[in-house]
């Protein structure tokens, strides 16, 4: 039987791994900001490189496992917290904490729904769908991405998901380090600023990609 502390450690470790993945994912996606034809060849080459690499394959399995564990563990924690959770007729406890800290589950669900759509449209299409090819004969994922982001509602969906992710990370990063036992006030302060900067920069950059494509590639 896992203790309440161990379950939170699983949340922290999987969450931090997913944060690390976000950095790598974003760095790759920055290629989408290149001029169209250069971006097409560069991005498709990069996608092909990733899909053929055994090391990337291993990391991708760790990634799928992390997402699954993070989700399952969060559901267990939420259900187990239902019994001891206080309930009041007149409740003003909201003054003591941030909305996003109390509603990580709602934010997480938005992110999960987004992930399902995101995986289906890009990951599934790339792996199993009928893909167009570019001038070098590589699967043209770039075209799929650009086409997808021509729809305004699809861009809005991405931006909303990134806002949810941003708040999820602002709480999640400091919370993860606390769960892993970082108690020194100086480093706690640093991590708080780091977490805030990390969340805003990563999510803003991700959100800019669909916005950039929507407005520049009509």
């Amino acid at each position: 039987m896992l203790t309440t502390l161990s379950r939170k450690i699983i949340m922290a470790l999987t969450g931090l791994f997913l944060c690390l993945f976000l950095v790598i994912h974003l760095l790759g996606n920055l290629q989408l900001f290149l001029p169209t034809e250069e971006a097409r060849l560069q991005f498709n080459w990069y996608s092909h490189l990733l899909s053929g690499n055994i090391l990337i394959k291993i990391i991708s399995y760790v990634l799928y496992l992390s997402i699954l564990l993070h989700v399952i563990d969060s559901v267990i924690i939420t259900l187990k917290n239902k019994r001891p959770a206080p309930r009041y007729q007149y409740d003003q406890r909201g003054r003591a904490s941030k909305w996003y800290s109390r509603n990580m589950g709602i934010l997480g669900t938005i992110i999960l729904i987004f992930l399902v759509i995101h995986f289906k449209d890009f990951w599934y299409s790339y792996k199993f769908g009928n893909m167009p090819v570019d001038s070098k004969g590589q699967k043209d994922l770039y075209q799929i991405v650009v086409t997808a982001f021509q729809e305004w509602w699809y861009v809005v969906l991405y931006v909303i998901a990134m806002i949810a992710l941003c708040y999820h990370l602002i709480h999640g990063i400091t919370s993860a380090f606390r769960t892993l036992g970082l108690y020194h006030p100086k480093y706690v302060r640093w991590i708080k600023y780091f977490g805030l900067a990390f969340s805003v920069i990563i999510c803003a950059a991700f959100a800019l990609i669909p916005i950039y494509i929507f407005f520049t590639m009509k």
């Binding site: 939170k8 924690i77 187990k80 904490s97």
Partner: peptide, 9 residues
């Protein structure tokens, strides 16, 4: 008792 989710309330 429940899990601590670090809301700091």
């Amino acid at each position: 008792f429940g899990h601590c989710t670090n809301t700091e309330a």
